[in-house]
Design a protein around this nucleic acid. Structure first.
Lengths: 232, 232
DNA sequence: CGCAGAGTTGATTATACTCAAATCCAGTGG
DNA sequence: CCACTGGATTTGAGTATAATCAACTCTGCG
């Protein structure tokens, strides 16, 4: 709802077009948004909600910095985190009028809101762009399919291995990186409990596959081959 | 590959536009395809493959009759069925040049193949249509998110209950219906084993929540409230 | 009738969960 | 600088859910 008022103050004539172009041509670390200040950036505090399931979906978002989690809840509080949205990622586009999931900040994060427009209009303004929007959509679908495979058929070890490789690729593409989220979030993303995530990580560390720093948020991948093998 | 040669013989100038319109306006049981014979219908035998992961994605498909399963495999054979495609469902649209999953017929099924076109062209021909394509895409994404919740956080009972309600709605919207697929398929869709699926169904039957016919493929939902409660 | 594939049922086990406690760490304030 | 606090994480012990292994039954069909 705060998200809402903030978003309502935006005026963005071709915002969607710009963000989409940036997103498709240069998937991450795109500076299209920074180069053309088309929307008001909003900074979220740790855990602050951007929108909730059921809110009107008049806006969609692009992460500028930090990490946002998109998730669903069951009525008894069980949570499934669909995706972690990192810098450059676009999320919150909906088929209907309402958001189908909630979104909040894993830690301090900055996002830009874009007014949702009819794609019809978009298509008229820039037909080539529509291809890009579709591609973005379909990549998201692909990731969803990957994740269904993980959730439905992989073991705890395989889930964690896949997760580590994926995060390494997304946050830095190096062997050493910082996990932006805590164990609870990882657990709710992988369909595990926090204890199982912790145990699996410690086990990997004992086996020399990874190194965990004292703070436990920084990870070094020592044996990508072993992880890849578990990645199945 | 057989799918491939068959598909190559098609000539469909505005096929995509037509199927898409039908799909969005009348999601299922649409007769848009029947009304305008734009593509060659292909009938698949039980278990026959339409395309496999990695095949060129020059075509996408719409189910005319029967059921098609779309799935992925891990290298050791574990399978995750993403979706069961029923009459009227569209599947096989990809972001890239290749199919990201395999598709084969659960039982005898008929599909129509449509040549993939650049959405740019589509947008030029019929801008309003683009909205519909996007909507179709996003609904698919929504279902994927629902299913991630199911796979990651629901118990076996909840999974089966959700599945039964969903299938009832999709195949007939009545309390009595036939499951088009066998236990193995249900298991691979819900992230369970065949034994657990069987046991859960028997348990529901013992509790009077459902009735199973001798053939075990026909189901009667006796207590939707109980199922809905498990649906969480 | 016999066969094969599908489905069910039973016994046992393993993986991951639950409950519980200990430890670690960052931040705070004396 | 150091003790204290609360949240996050790890570790441990025991358990439960669903998996595994195996046998048996049912159904449809030649």
């Amino acid at each position: 709802m705060q998200a809402y008022t903030a978003a309502n103050s935006l005026r963005l004539p071709t915002a969607a077009a710009i963000v989409m172009k940036g997103a498709t041509a240069i998937p991450r670390q795109s500076n299209a948004v920074a180069a053309r200040p088309v929307g008001v950036a909003r900074t979220l505090g740790k855990g602050e909600e951007l929108f909730a399931e059921g809110d009107a979906a008049d806006f969609f978002y692009k992460v500028v910095s930090g990490t946002v989690r998109t998730y669903r809840l069951l009525n008894d509080g069980r949570r499934q985190i669909d995706e972690f949205q990192l810098a450059g990622d676009i999320f919150g586009l909906e088929a209907g009028a309402k958001h189908r999931f909630s979104a909040d900040a894993v830690d301090v994060a900055t996002v830009v809101a874009f007014r949702r427009r009819r794609f019809e209009t978009l298509a008229h303004d820039d037909p080539a762009l529509v291809d890009q929007v579709m591609s973005s959509m379909m990549r998201s679908l692909e990731r969803a399919h990957d994740h269904m495979m993980l959730l439905g058929r992989k073991t705890a070890q395989e889930k964690v291995a896949t997760f580590l490789l994926d995060m390494a690729r997304r946050v830095s593409n190096e062997d050493r990186f910082e996990l932006p989220m805590q164990r609870t979030d990882i657990a709710d993303h992988l369909g595990l409990t926090i204890e199982t995530v912790s145990r699996t990580l410690t086990q990997f560390a004992r086996e020399g596959i990874i190194k965990l720093a004292a703070a436990s948020r920084s990870v070094v991948l020592c044996d990508r081959v072993a992880l890849q093998r578990l990645n199945a």
